[in-house]
């Protein structure tokens, strides 16, 4: 696998080796940090998903109760108030405020519901009959909507966290599977290149010394040869002289130096 990630285009020098080593170290630290962040977020995320699951179930129940309270209204009023309600809606009484919460550097929104006092579009609905049921149903629905708002906060947090975790995980994976192996590869490459250079250097030195030997040997031979001719000349001269040297005699030969 590491073969596929390639290496960085650097010259295999000792300086870049140092650079790469510090980069590797940095990447490892970063990886550890991001991994921890991702774990923290994932923990939170799992917590949220669990709560979403619960809240959704709860919502099912709450909405059912609320729908039932509306059934009570239509029982008491004895008719349909839907249209009237739709038409008399003017100002939202029930509003939300968005707050933000910081989780490992991620801003999560949190909706908070509040009611705008003094706005009451339906105060007189069901004046003739059913007004009490209408009021009760309003309260039930207001509680239901609070649950919905809570759920909406969770859900938004879910969407954002999901996104953030994906990004973080992508980074973690990138570091783990691309950057680190790549840097390691580069280091290996540099080291092997440097070794190669070392070996070449050694070989070269060997070659040089070999050549030096040869050269000295040749030079010695030459000198020897020169000496030999000189000796012959001397011998001829000696032959001319009656006194021939006693080769086997005490007289020592000249040392041959190689």
């Amino acid at each position: 696998m590491s073969g596929s990630v390639g290496r960085e285009p650097v010259f295999p020098t000792r300086q870049s080796l140092g650079l790469m080593k510090s980069k590797l170290k940095g990447a490892e630290i970063g990886h550890g940090l991001l991994k921890r962040k991702s774990e923290a977020l994932t923990k939170r995320f799992r917590d949220i998903t669990r709560r979403i699951d619960e809240a959704k179930q709860k919502m099912g129940r709450v909405m059912q109760i609320a729908a039932f309270s509306l059934a009570e209204v239509s029982y008491a009023v004895g008719g349909d108030i839907g249209y009237q309600i739709q038409e008399s809606a003017k100002q939202a009484r029930f509003r939300v405020r968005a707050k933000q919460e910081n989780v490992s550097g991620v801003l999560l929104p949190h909706f908070e519901s509040y009611t705008e006092e003094g706005i009451n579009d339906f105060g007189l609905t069901g004046l003739g009959k059913g007004g009490q049921q209408v009021q009760r149903s309003r309260e039930t629905y207001a509680r239901a909507v609070e649950t919905l708002v809570e759920l909406a906060s969770l859900q938004t947090a879910f969407v954002i966290l999901d996104e953030v975790i994906k990004v973080v995980n992508r980074r973690v994976n990138a570091i783990e599977h691309v950057i680190i192996p790549r840097t390691e590869n580069t280091i290996k490459y540099i080291i092997s290149e440097l070794d190669e250079v070392d070996r070449e250097e050694f070989y070269r030195l060997k070659k040089v010394s070999n050549k030096k030997h040869r050269d000295t040997a040749a030079a010695d031979a030459e000198i020897e040869a020169a000496r030999a001719t000189e000796g012959e000349k001397n011998a001829l001269e000696e032959e001319e002289t009656p006194e021939a040297p006693d080769v086997l005699g005490e007289q020592e030969d000249a040392d041959v130096i190689f």
Binding site: L70, A89, K90, R138
Partner: peptide, 9 residues
């Protein structure tokens, strides 16, 4: 209708 009753309208 119910949600409007809660005052979201």
């Amino acid at each position: 209708t119910g949600l409007l009753l809660a005052g979201v309208g």
